[in-house]
Design a protein around this nucleic acid. Structure first.
Lengths: 152, 152
DNA sequence: TATTGTTATACTCTATAACTATA
DNA sequence: TATAGTTATAGAGTATAACAATA
């Protein structure tokens, strides 16, 4: 028996984080009270916030669902006034998805809620550990992405 | 404009980790080649490994799906010879779910694959940073669980 | 009466395939 | 011919409700 490597420890925790219960609880809390937003459409809203205005195909690859689901969720958000469609200036085949002001407001609210929850989780940590963890986590996520585990 | 707090940074990375693409890529890689195991039944197998023999109701609460789905996935794994059902000694209503030797073997294989992937992600990190990250991540997950974001 | 496991049913999420328009 | 978006359809995944057995 060898001692648990950092990889073993990280593997176990990542397994717990990726459980359905984790995202369900978290997403439900985030979208609660935001009109026109639900667990399925949240990644679309969030992805648009991260990418800025972009096409459905690109957004689909980033959030990990295919074009057809992405365009349907975008329609749902559009119906709720959170997303706007415009023709891509450079390619008439493509549609440019973008947040409306209401969409930006909704996204800001969910981000604030998530950040507050994370601040809560990190409360009581030594400032140095919290900062180091945040930096390492970003490094970790970027590396995962590079390996194909997380899309950009 | 204030600087991004650790909570802001962690929130952003957690959002990326919880995307469908992350778990889909990871889970697909883990269950590939393991007979009788798929993305839906993997949490059941993994949960049984973490908890040891337990009831469907308890397992369901841990993996974040309800009793009926858990029992159906358990049946699938049982059909594949990875899980065994026995009557709970202390309560004849309850069924004790447990891994078979084949189930343990399959779980070991997936764990090894995940740990190897994590070692790969952490390769090139200073040993101190990797160890600190692993420890902080465990602390983080435990705190999330305590807030209801992750079930035990 | 309450709880466990299970099954029947329905609903949600998502992918595949087909269609239209543009490149 | 290839690609973007969309829509129609089908298939997973999951929850709700109802049942039988036991507490």
């Amino acid at each position: 028996m060898t001692a648990a490597s950092p990889g073993d420890l990280v593997a176990e925790q990542l397994g717990r984080l990726l459980l359905r219960s984790t995202r369900q609880h978290l997403y439900l809390r985030l979208v609660a009270g935001v009109d026109g937003l639900d667990v399925a459409t949240y990644p679309v809203l969030s992805g648009l916030g991260r990418l800025g205005p972009t096409t459905a195909t690109h957004l689909a690859s980033v959030i990990g669902v295919d074009r057809s689901a992405t365009t349907r969720y975008a329609s749902k958000l559009e119906a709720g006034g959170l997303v706007r469609r415009t023709v891509d200036p450079g390619d008439a085949r493509a549609t440019r998805l973008a947040l409306t002001p209401a969409g930006t407001t909704a996204l800001t609210a969910t981000r604030r809620a998530l950040s507050a929850a994370m601040d809560d989780v990190l409360s009581g940590w030594p400032a140095a550990e919290a900062a180091a963890f945040a930096a390492s986590l970003e490094r970790f996520t970027n590396r995962l992405e590079g390996m194909g585990g997380v899309d950009r």
